[in-house]
Design a protein around this nucleic acid. Structure first.
Lengths: 333, 333
DNA sequence: AGAGTTTGAGCAAACGTTGTCAAGTAAACC
DNA sequence: GGTTTACTTGACAACGTTTGCTCAAACTCT
């Protein structure tokens, strides 16, 4: 609390001027080996740590990156955040997180972080901010968006092909002989959800299976909503032999609904999820799913941000979404 | 990027001195209603946001709290971090996270965060830093520790009674008539793991069930290790009718091991976990577990930190660890 | 040996705030 | 009407850095 060592202290101790110490630290100018020796010695001895606030004030950059998150409590979100954190680990930047789950409106939040903390860049995870606002924002700051494709900002977006993911998941079921395939959607306002649904429809179409909207029910990405969705589906009385859920959590909820009804997975019903959460490998039975590389995406976002901050234009990375075939899917009987 | 409005800009625009603007903002001194009006108007019009770096430099506080985390990728950890984040939401402080999973040694990491960012307080989540170091650290900074009890720093620790949790879990199985109860431990160097194991032994003892070390196998908190543990247990050839796992993840792994062997839960084997992760409510069958209020603990840590920063000594909160009885446990046959 | 050139290091002015101090003004007292 | 009192405001020096400019000393060259 008390004795914080400043650059000036070091200078005094080494008998040189603050400028010299600063220059040694930043490697800006050359100094005699002896002077350098002495100063470095004092830095070590006094355990000097530069004050980032002062540096930031002077240099006009805070060395922080604001991460704006939206949905809370979702494993997808966690994975991404962890990746972001990891990606900044060996850099001079630190991420600071601003959750969007407060009362304050999203935009206010953005402004606040941007403004007060003078963040050097922003990473936006997920969904709710309108595209135009993001484009506007990108004009005045380094911006990276993960989990979403904003037109005009494609280079700064980290995303996956959700349509393809939905297609592959559904195709897998079709290949197993299923014809009556239900779908539990994500939150309808969510673009990912729409795309996955698109993929589902396209797969159906390409196999010439007529689309039946009675087999589609709206979910909310939670386990609970998956469970409800299956009950809705069942109560409608339509026969189906497989379900594609827009995320793993809903698949788990759906699984429980079937368990309660005594319907066996995969014997009676095949089940496919989306996300590839770690733990669904240990579901009963292990869940077939589309893997979304959340951690890698977060890490990629951090790297991209760093490159952008250094003024480099890195190659755009695309992330694959492999189908992980496990034990929740089987041939249709 | 370009036009950042400073306090001086506002002052100029309003035709007053910077000091006056500063005073209005901080409410330090009184000003005429008209001046205030005018200044507030300009602040609004120019959309001025104070520069926290400059404020921090001047006031000697950075308005940031360093959060040092250790284990990564664990749901327990996630929950706590979310709670911390949430707890700081409405305060003027922002948490910055420093993961302890890097190559750099833990202590170095602490020093770095503390030193460079001039954090006003620290929250340490979990386990590996030696007690004496923490006590030392607490001398020079505001420190809160979550998930651990450090002697001499009890007031600043947020923790649960793991012995009691382990006891309750085991007692529940005993009450159901089980006598041959296996235990899968956590990482042996982890204090929580030791305590839960203690609780297990105490429950056994209080029911006069002899302790059999053949029924105890070491786990590593992961699903995979839970699965292995059950296989080890089974290969030893000792009969048992119930398993208490030191966390939910291992319980899920154990569950899968039983599934593979065709052993039914809870019909053949009763299973109890620890943590109360959201998703195990949707396990097959829903898992009986001891709930550890991770989110609340994180939130509590943030609140405690805030109080400490304000110089208040808040009452120490203790967190309950209720037993959540679900469907993975049944009467012994 | 003197002029030109390099080199090492210091001075001082910023960066955007805050807080102390004093100055200025208007109201209140005798 | 002069003096005290209360109140509002401005000047200015910090906080810990970085950086352009200056300058002395040490080199190079003819």
């Amino acid at each position: 609390m008390a004795e914080v060592v400043t650059l000036t202290d070091v200078a005094r101790a080494a008998g040189v001027s603050p400028s010299t110490v600063s220059r040694i630290l930043s490697g800006t100018a050359r100094v005699t080996p002896e002077t350098r020796q002495k100063v470095m010695g004092e830095i070590e001895r006094l355990d000097y740590q530069p004050n980032i606030l002062a540096q930031g004030l002077k240099r006009g950059q805070s060395m922080t990156v604001g991460v704006l998150t939206q949905e809370l409590n979702s494993p997808f979100f966690d994975g991404t955040v962890q990746g972001i954190e990891f990606g900044f680990e060996d850099s001079d930047y630190d991420p600071i997180f601003a959750g969007g789950h407060s009362r304050k409106s999203e935009e206010k939040r953005v402004l606040e972080v941007l403004g007060r903390r003078r963040v050097d860049a922003m990473i936006i995870v997920g969904g709710f901010l309108p595209d135009p606002l993001l484009v506007e924002l990108a004009r005045s700051t380094v911006l990276v968006i993960v989990g979403r494709k904003v037109s005009g900002l494609e280079e700064q977006c980290i995303y996956i092909d959700n349509v393809k993911g939905g297609f592959d998941a559904t195709k897998h079921l079709i290949d197993l002989g299923h014809r009556r395939i239900a779908h539990i959607t994500g939150i309808p306002s969510n673009l990912d959800a729409i795309d996955r649904f698109q993929g589902y429809r396209q797969a159906l179409e390409s196999a010439r299976i007529p689309y039946d909207h009675q087999l589609v029910v709206e979910g909310a990405y939670t386990e609970q909503s998956g469970l409800f969705a299956v009950e809705t589906l069942l109560s409608r009385g339509n026969r189906f032999t497989a379900v594609f859920c827009a995320n793993d959590q809903m698949a788990c909820g759906a699984r429980l609904a079937f368990y309660r009804r005594g319907m066996r997975v995969p014997d009676d019903i095949s089940l496919v999820g989306f996300d590839g959460l770690q733990y669904v490998l240990f579901a009963i039975p292990p869940l077939t799913t589309i893997r979304q590389p959340m951690f890698e995406m977060g890490q990629g976002a951090a790297r991209l941000t760093l490159s952008l901050l250094e003024g480099k234009k890195p190659p755009h990375i695309t992330f694959a979404t492999p189908l992980l075939v496990r034990e929740s899917t089987a041939m249709a009987r």
